[in-house]
Amino acid sequence: MPQKKSDLLQGTLDLLLLKTIAPGPMHGYGIAQRILLTSKEVLQVQQGSLYPALHRLERKGLITSKWKESESGRMAKYYSLTAAGKKQFSTELEHWRRYATAISLVLEA
């Protein structure tokens, strides 16, 4: 795996965001950190993509937000999945798996 932090493949950000907040409510900074850590510091979600994406998902009704005190004692906006978001996540995950399998089938043919 390359050590360089890479840009996200177009269209995968929503999937990553949905996956990251699936276990429970998280704030924007936490989401970015979680993605960075779990991807072994490969995937860095920039604020410029993160917040517009979160707001877009919220507008679509896939996630909701609530202001809450964070572990550091600051007020933070926590995002969590709605029922529609959970459904959308499983659909997108399924799509992604099929897509990734198809790509590797072609590349390794």
Partner: peptide, 16 residues
């Protein structure tokens, strides 16, 4: 306002 507070929070966490 909401967005401003949200971004400020992110910046504060990053500073920490």
């Amino acid at each position: 306002d909401d967005l401003e507070r949200e971004l400020a929070h992110h910046l504060a966490e990053l500073t920490d």
